[in-house]
């Protein structure tokens, strides 16, 4: 099984050869944005929960809470830049 792998990669590389990458550039950029969004979501999950808790106790916290909740948005914005770099 293992000894067939080099041969297999050889074939795959030849098939996909001709200069084009295994993943087209546009798809890669889309992936990058998608993964960035995932990261943002994970970060906002806990920040959002804490922010809602704080606002529920004290309405004056609303603006601060909103700012902190929005901070991880920078992740997706930076990922968004990828599209222009690639495209």
């Amino acid at each position: 099984m293992l000894e067939t792998i080099p041969a297999l990669t050889e074939i795959v590389l030849q098939e996909g050869g001709g200069g084009s990458a295994a993943i087209p550039a546009n798809a890669a950029a889309a992936l990058a944005v998608g993964l960035g969004a995932l990261g943002t979501g994970i970060a906002q999950r806990s920040i959002g929960a804490a922010a809602v808790g704080a606002v529920a106790e004290d309405r004056d916290m609303f603006v601060t809470a909103l700012i902190f909740t929005a901070l991880p948005e920078t992740l997706i914005i930076i990922a968004f830049v990828t599209i222009f770099l690639v495209g």
Partner: peptide, 14 residues
């Protein structure tokens, strides 16, 4: 467990 939410509320109350 929703630690974040509960902690935020408790801290605020404390």
């Amino acid at each position: 467990s929703n630690y974040e939410y509960v902690t935020a509320r408790v801290r605020s109350r404390r």
